[in-house]
């Protein structure tokens, strides 16, 4: 456990220390962990170069706003596929799953066209729009809903709890682990996504952190500004790491509890 921990932490420690180094300290014959002189100029310079506040809000709104919408679409679709009988259901489900096989890169141009015709270029909505329906989420929740026994549904029906009511009051709470798993995957994916937001956004009004940080990208011809890059990265990931550390206990316990319930 300890070696694994060190292995995971080492890059982060290196990042943090580099952010406090002066440029001359980064390149030395023998790599050194601690800066010879601790400097804060990297942070001031990085902070001035980017509108971190706006980028942060955008990233947050995009990943969590999208998750909220996905929660609705995915629940309804999964309910239909898991609990309802209608002609062509299995065929439609296969078609939906087929979407998982399509590489997202191949849909960039048609998606761009759609977003552009809707007049949504350079908006946060444009970044989220292609992901409003999620085949992965639908699949995950359909499997979860299917494990809920029929008897429970019948018992609920006796008490007048049917249809969407049943979905909301029974299926959703019972499938919490699946929701949590999907939520984690979705939020990490969209928090980290780079290419699609880069294509559809032009300004800090709509850009997420990933695209904003691209300003510090490594150069092809020269050396990278490592100290600046590390400081900017630290500013970008710092708050989310803090949030995780604070909420850690809650996070893990909710995982455990819902695991027991499900």
């Amino acid at each position: 456990m300890v070696p694994a921990c060190v292995l995971f932490l080492a890059p982060f420690v290196w990042l943090t220390l580099t952010a406090f180094k002066s440029r001359q300290d980064v390149f030395s014959l023998t790599p050194r962990w601690l800066p010879t002189k601790w400097v804060l100029t990297n942070f001031t310079e990085a902070w001035q170069a980017l509108p971190f506040g706006a980028l942060y809000i955008n990233t947050f709104l995009i990943s969590f706003g999208l998750l909220a919408v996905q929660f609705v679409t995915v629940s309804l679709a999964a309910y239909a596929f898991a609990r309802m009988e209608f002609p062509g259901r299995d065929f439609l489900f296969m078609v939906l799953l087929g979407q998982l096989m399509i590489a997202p890169q191949s849909t960039v141009v048609p998606n761009y066209l759609t977003v552009s015709r809707l007049g949504l270029l350079d908006t946060r909505t444009a970044i989220a729009l292609p992901y409003v329906a999620s085949a992965f989420g639908t699949f995950l929740l359909r499997q979860a809903f299917k494990t809920v026994p029929r008897e429970l549904e019948e018992a609920a029906a006796v008490d007048g709890c049917t249809g969407l009511n049943f979905l909301w009051r029974m299926l959703v709470p019972l499938s919490r682990p699946s929701y949590l798993a999907f939520g984690l995957v979705s939020v990490t994916y969209h928090w980290n996504e780079f290419f699609w937001p880069l294509i559809v956004t032009d300004t800090a009004r709509s850009r997420p952190l990933t695209v904003g940080l691209g300003v510090f990208a490594q150069t092809a011809e020269g050396g990278a500004e490592w100290t600046l890059l590390m400081a900017a990265t630290l500013i970008a990931v710092g708050p989310i790491i803090l949030l995780f550390l604070v909420l850690q206990r809650k996070f893990i316990s909710s995982f455990m509890m819902s695991g027991l319930k499900g």
Binding site: A49, G214, V215, T219, E221, E225, L228, L229
Partner: peptide, 15 residues
């Protein structure tokens, strides 16, 4: 005039 500019050199040059 929309001007696409690649940030190939480190950040401060964008300024």
């Amino acid at each position: 005039v929309r001007f696409y500019y690649p940030v190939q050199v480190a950040g401060p040059l964008a300024r």
